[in-house]
Amino acid sequence: MEIISKNITFREDRQLLVITHLTQYLDYVTGFGGLIVPLILWLTNKDAVLGMNEHGKSVINLQLSLILYLVIGIPSILLLGLGILLLVFAGMLSLIMPIVNAVRASNGESPSYFGTIRFIA
């Protein structure tokens, strides 16, 4: 069996990385675009843009974590009343972390999402 080495060249496009992080705010406009648009950007550019694989995985992990927090938090309000704290945490996370990581992406740093579950490693 012969293994052919591919010479893959990555282009550095920090603006696309920043846009990937900021498209998470589409959830506030459309209600669902914050997961779909970054997913499409990640899947189409992960082999072409330097750092897109790492940043895309982080964005998708955050969005999936937020969905899980909402699914757990809403029934917890009715059962325990403590679900409000989880929903406040998820709301603050969804507002602050995309901006922080968009700035990190523009500086060429790795993303760091606090409070996310790594669904995609």
Rank of each mutant, 00 (worst) to 15 (best):
G115V: 11
L17N: 01
I8N: 14
T44R: 06
S94V: 11
G33Y: 03
I19R: 09
G81Q: 09
Y25V: 05
T20A: 10
Y69I: 05
D13H: 01
N107V: 02
S106T: 07
G91K: 00
M1C: 11
I36N: 06
R104H: 01
E2W: 13
I74Q: 02
F32I: 12
L41S: 04
L80R: 13
I84N: 09
N101M: 01
Q63D: 14
L79Q: 12
Y69D: 04
L39T: 08
D13V: 03
N61P: 02
I77F: 02
V71L: 04
I120S: 04
Y69N: 04
I120C: 07
I3C: 10
D13P: 03
E2A: 15
F89D: 07
W42E: 02
L41A: 04
L93E: 10
N53D: 11
V100I: 13
L80A: 13
K6V: 15
L85T: 06
L95E: 08
I40E: 06
L43A: 14
Q15F: 12
L41F: 06
Q63V: 12
I8H: 11
F32R: 12
V71Y: 01
N61H: 00
L70T: 11
L70Q: 14
G33Q: 07
F119G: 08
G83D: 03
H21K: 11
A90H: 02
P111I: 00
W42M: 06
S110P: 11
A102E: 00
R11F: 14
D47M: 13
L35T: 08
V29D: 15
L85E: 07
G33R: 05
S106P: 02
A102W: 01
L87N: 03
Q24A: 05
D27E: 12
Y113K: 00
V103K: 05
V18Q: 09
N53E: 10
G51T: 10
T44H: 03
I77K: 01
G108S: 00
L70E: 12
L68P: 08
L93V: 11
